[in-house]
Amino acid sequence: MSLLELDQVEKVFGTGSQAVPAVRGVTLAVDRGETLGLVGESGCGKSTLARVVVGLTEATGGRIVFDGEDVTNEVGDRTFRRKVQMVSQHPGQSLNPRLRIETTLAEPLRLLGVTDDPSEIDRRIDEMLTVVGLNPDYRRRRPGSLSGGQQQRVAIARALMSEPELVVLDEPTSSLDQSIRGRIVALLREIQERRGVAYLFISHDLSTVRRIAHRVAVMYLGRIVEVSATEAIFDDPRHPYTRALLSAVPSIDVRARRRRIVLPGETPSPVSLPVGCSFQERCPLVHDRCRREDPRLMESADGHLVACFAAVPAVSG
């Protein structure tokens, strides 16, 4: 049984002709102790999905099942918050600038009902700062006197305080320098190995995802278009969008100036989606069926899920 299951989750902002469907029928599962990478470009709905999962935004459709229980209407509750936490993109903004680190870290313990005992809280703060690679002396500081990497370590510490089973990481390394990025990823992996926490790792940075994720889901315009094991996604991408995305990433290998697949145009607005596949206007493999029907995620024999008529050998029925 998966730790988190999303079943046809939808999120539409606004109503009527102004309605923006940010997440359109996403079905996904995250297992205990695993890292699921969620990849997509800006505006594809991945951050909205993250907010839906942690209960900062209410879904407008579908079901959220956590640990076998339907929690669709309880994602904002205290018990759920204890188990599912989040780290967001801008470490400088995600910490209240006026509070000392220790105050920020004590909040989840007190408010989520973990413990009220001051000496226990103290102990846990020191312990957690050590876990995220910070000197416990930093507890008296305020976020403004820390570097971006240190702030992100504090944000990770805060998310871990209530000993959650799932942490949603929304672009946790995107605003950090390359050298710091690597350390944060290594830190997250170390924490996962020791504590068995599962990650939903959201990023547009494919190389980072490759280093941390066990499985990867690719999102385009509010839909999941491909899901598979990380190696399978990177070595054998099947959806034309995934292929283009991967080939667009510059490589550090100077000798291999490969031929890239450059997609024409830009992601269309989710307000006026075409009938059929939402990728049709940019797709090199588009054919008639894509303009009539919207492909669902289809599973091939090896467990690789792809939402593309051209990528999956036509199966009868």
Binding site: R51, S88, Q93, E107, L111, A155
Partner: peptide, 22 residues
């Protein structure tokens, strides 16, 4: 709209606490 408000909500702050404490 700042991210620390989300952070405060996730840390278990009820709405009045988010408003007046954060």
């Amino acid at each position: 709209e700042m991210e620390y408000v989300d952070g405060a909500r996730l840390a278990g702050n009820p709405p009045w606490r988010v408003a007046f404490r954060h």
